[in-house]
Amino acid sequence: MTLHAPLAIEATGLVKTYGDTTAVAGIDLAVPPGVVYGVLGPNGAGKTTTIRMLATLIRPDAGSARVLGHDVVTEADAVRAQVSLTGQLASVDEELTGRENLVLLGRLLGLSRAGARARADELLEAFGIAAAAGKLVKHYSGGMRRRLDIAASIVVTPRLMFLDEPTTGLDPRSRNHVWEIARALVAEGTTILLCTQYLEEADQLADGIAVIDRGTVIAEGTPAQLKASVGSGGLRVRLLDAERRPEAAALLERAVGPVTLEADPAGLTAQCPDSARAATGVGELARTGIGIAEFALDQPSLDEVFLALTGHAAEVPPPAATLEEQPS
């Protein structure tokens, strides 16, 4: 333990290799308690391997880490007693019912039989799976499975929770449920380490973000800092009248930022540091009498973050919402 406010996670120089693959090549993390900390990176960046080391499932080959003040190697049991893991696979038992899954966890954590049952019912109710409580999990939808998985991780509320890509493969509605649950956990004082491929998700939930690539941290900061470093998003406008595009471009260039013209003859995008500036731009256009068919403020995608930070593209598709919106 240190004398300062203890960090929830303090990792230095974590390394893990498998044969000639270096999964994690020296990661440092400093996560204060009570926040959501995002670890953002593409497929194969080493997110899961990092989480597995921090959750005491595998030993680091080099480096060390303390979780809630305990060393993950020498005091693994003390770490396990305070954390819980929601892995990349929804790790629930498919051959048991939803309720049995939760009762099992409750019993393993030391609840009485009646206590475990009551706790299971409370969680099933809260997570909106009460109606399917008696069905085998193999018949659950992806969203229900993920919610059950998270419920299983908080049968006893952990002080720290590892969430590994909790919304990959979920529809927007299920994704919002998961985000709600994560926010509720943090509001009650749990620290969350969130691994994700989606900048939007990190932006929505995280107070701090580490971007990792090929097993190392390549950038760190708040979501706002990170987006600023990428040159933020863009104000995308489609005009009613393509003829007036040059005029609109000049105006936005002045009021907002550098403009790129799109393939669509009526479309253009202005790089935009914040939403206030975007609003000014839209207002100016309206005042000048240039008709707007539609406009939107784009978030930068993980792609752009990667391009900006590493000079090479990430090997993941960006989230669907921004898929068609990238000016080339």
């Binding site: 954590l109 706790r119 109710e125 909106g128 939808s141 908080i154 006893v156 709600e180 749990t190």
Partner: peptide, 27 residues
């Protein structure tokens, strides 16, 4: 094929469920 329509996780109930536990002694 979800067996039932996923009814929404109820935020207030989620908060209550999260807040309500003390860690029991290890079995």
């Amino acid at each position: 094929a979800a067996t039932t329509a996923p009814d929404a996780a109820d935020t207030a109930a989620v908060r209550r469920a999260i807040a309500s536990t003390a860690r029991p002694p290890r079995p």
